[in-house]
Amino acid sequence: MLEARLAQAAVLKKTLDAIKELVTDANFDCSDGGISLQAMDNSHVALVSLLLRADGFEPYRCDRNLALGINLNSLSKVLRSAQNEDIITLKAADDPDNLSLTFESQNQDRISEYEMKLMDIDQEHLGIPETAYAAVITMPAAEFQRICRDLSGISESVTIDASKDGVKFASAGDIGNGSVTLKQTHNPEEPALSTSIELSESVTLTFSLKYLVNFTKATPLAGAVTLQMSNDVPLLVEYKMEGGYLRYYLAPKIQD
């Protein structure tokens, strides 16, 4: 059986908000290492990979591997009933038809109990190769969100150019064009507000802004975001949170 108690409902609520528009149904794979999810979006352009490590729960118990097939919109509706500060406990039997969710208020004067029907999902799992990326850019998550939102007003696409001079986000559309260039900065007081650029070679790739804007729904999960790029491979956008990560992979736009 699975029993996983999470001290802050907000983590799960924000995680769901960050993926439910990309992915409709997904298996939550539970093992003794924690709870993970891998799913492509409907158009097979992006891939979401979530890990909530066992040590992020207290307690965490999973006797055997379980795949909990969940409609994310339904889970999101159930989680709406949890307050951000509630303690959430997830429970499932070994061959479960239902997922049980308990929300306890901090001072334990309110306990809400929900049961959600599970579904059988035959999901394709992709093998993601270990990649040493040519460019690794870490920046404030809110900055990345703002750049994506601003440039999406200009064009459907953005070209990200990482070089020794900085990282440049550029878009060109019917109304004109625009770009934002970030230089490396160092803010020792608040590392999450720094921008760092590690580069082994220059990289230029073009991506759909629709997807990037969607990825930035994860902004409330982390102060910083890391973009990892190599020429001719998907972009990795990673939000690290306490006890896990949310990663998005996005296939580049290529010359036909």
């Binding site: 492509m40 097979h44 352009v45 992006a46 891939l47 394709e124 799992h125 992709l126 093998g127 993601i128 190769p129 696409s157 073009t206 759909s208 491979v233 998907p234 992979y249 996005l250 296939a251 580049p252 736009k253 290529i254 010359q255 036909d256």
Partner: peptide, 14 residues
């Protein structure tokens, strides 16, 4: 022309 590639073109089936 520029076109959108699919993620499966890069990551193999497990």
């Amino acid at each position: 022309a520029i076109k959108q590639s699919e993620i499966k073109a890069y990551f193999g089936r497990k």
